[in-house]
Design a protein around this nucleic acid. Structure first.
Lengths: 316, 316
DNA sequence: TTGTATGCGTTATCAA
DNA sequence: TTGATAACGCATACAA
């Protein structure tokens, strides 16, 4: 194993100079810096993460809490995880995956948290190390999320532009910020176009939205578009419509939200608001590492613009 | 932070005794052990992972390589990951997620690898640290996997018991061990019942199996069951059959394989061979940690029995 | 700007 | 069976 000392010897400097080249390059003359860089490259030096962690009183580990039930877990967590892993990797951090609140909080430098609901506030407040939340919240926790409001705004604008006469929002029946924002995007856009926003809410299961169409089929005239708060709900709507031999997308449009996996499983494939989940994961990691570097100072909120993906469930 | 020394002081012993109680309890008298345990509990001692790693010349990190393309990634990787994370956690190991072969192999104590195909053999051979593979292989790499042969055996037996007269296997068109095993389970069982095994193969996409049914619809008499090598293929078969208004499960049965997510998205829901993916992940982790502890000695193969889940696509 | 000495928490070695 | 000491690789404080 190549250590700092080996590099120092090779470059004819002390190991502190090498350490400084890595951590405080401004304090070293360019001349020495060149020598040290050359030696590091020659020897293919790789810093020892454990030693660095010990000396810094750090662990180089962050814990990722998924507070939702795993079985109901959305496939997009996989992408989130990839993004986080990449972001952490850039700074030689490793990951610990946690699925329970009553978990050892030690041996880590900070937390990324997802699936946090309003009831988790107390728990979040007790956390002693820097934390970043994935998912909009209105309690002041630093977070990264898709710009949910912008997402439904874009979808609604699209549906209006494609001349669907009546728009219906199918929301998720939870009192959470992401849902409020998605509804707000819909409502505001409708009002701007002087159209009446109609909203129905239900739990996030495709069989419920499918049932909803079956129960209310007669209520919806041709030329209606359903803007859904999730791809899961959208899939159910598509199924319900198909069951009544409705023409998609000509007579009825369906817009999903998420754009991870489910949209492509649907038949016909879903138009959807695609969240850049992997990018968000990476940003979560970066935000947390920066927060750690700044000994916990607030990072605010970061909203990432989603992308409209137009597929067979909407007019083109 | 509570350290070994703190515990030692409290228990009136040297820190080496405390260290031994943790790592080599056999070398310490019961009397002292009690004292030390009491002190550890009193002070809520948590070992410092970084220090342990440094002293042992370890990193307490393992890397998880996913060699498949992320976009085509099956949602079951999420469950695999959870299992691995839990298994690692038991020994205070953290995780690094990697998606590229040309990756830094340093700063880790071992590797768990998935998505490895035959062409990856050379790369696998060059690995210098202990590795465990998720997924059957016939090149002698230690692995954990579902008992694929047993899975299709169970499914085939079930279909025969439910009096489907003709059975067709829809396989994945790859030259990989898991596929051979799944086919073998089907073939052997058919032969035992003196039935003719028919096999078709295609790439693992639902639209291909759907197309397959459309192209070959006239070939399949009523009372046929399709045993599929994946839920993805099974979904396409179901769709193709539905397109011809076939009665499922009365006239046609469909059996999937995997039992992670996709089976429940299908409509009707799929009967499937459910792999205990999370458990497999945990076993991968345990196998690797044991291999590390045994300085790399071979661990052999571990096949885990899957579970038949009977749902609406097969007679009950 | 550069170098020396010391400590981070743990474990292995060796002596008692 | 137990304890003292050194060592793991790096970074901070301080001296030069």
């Amino acid at each position: 194993m190549i250590t700092l000392s080996d590099v120092a010897k090779k470059a004819n400097v002390s190991k502190m100079t090498v350490s400084r080249v890595i951590n405080h390059p401004g304090q070293v003359t360019d001349e020495l810096k060149q020598l040290v860089f050359a030696a590091m490259k020659d020897l293919d030096y790789r810093p020892n993460v454990a030693a660095k962690a010990l000396a810094n009183n750090r662990s180089q580990v962050i814990k990722f809490f998924i507070l939702e039930d795993i079985d109901t877990t959305e496939p997009y967590y996989m992408n989130l995880l990839f993004g986080i892993a990449k972001g952490l990797d850039e700074k030689q951090y490793a990951l610990q995956l946690v699925t329970s609140r009553n978990y050892d909080l030690g041996n880590s430098d900070g937390y990324i948290i997802t699936g946090a609901r309003a009831k988790d506030q107390e728990w979040l407040d007790r956390l002693e190390k820097p934390a970043v939340v994935f998912g909009e919240n209105r309690y002041g926790y630093d977070f990264v999320d898709t710009d949910n409001k912008q997402g439904t705004t874009m979808a609604t604008e699209y549906a209006i532009a494609k001349n669907y006469q009546s728009l219906v929002f199918i929301g998720i029946d939870v009192k959470e910020a992401f849902e409020y924002s998605r509804e707000a995007g819909f409502i505001n856009t409708m009002q701007q176009h002087q159209m009446i926003p109609k909203i129905y809410r239900m739990a996030n299961h495709s069989h419920l939205s499918e049932q909803f169409i079956n129960d209310n089929w007669q209520k919806f005239a041709r030329n209606t578009a359903f803007i859904c708060a999730s791809d899961r709900l959208a899939i159910g709507i598509v199924r319900g419509l198909a069951h009544h031999d409705a023409a998609i997308p000509n007579d009825f449009g369906v817009f999903g939200f998420d754009g991870v996996f489910l949209d492509q499983v649907s038949n016909p494939k879903l138009a959807t608001v695609k969240q850049p989940i992997q990018e968000i994961g990476r940003l979560c990691a970066r935000m947390l590492l920066q927060k750690i570097a700044q000994s916990g100072s607030p990072q605010g909120e970061l909203l990432v613009t989603p992308e409209l993906v137009i597929r067979d469930s909407m007019r083109k």
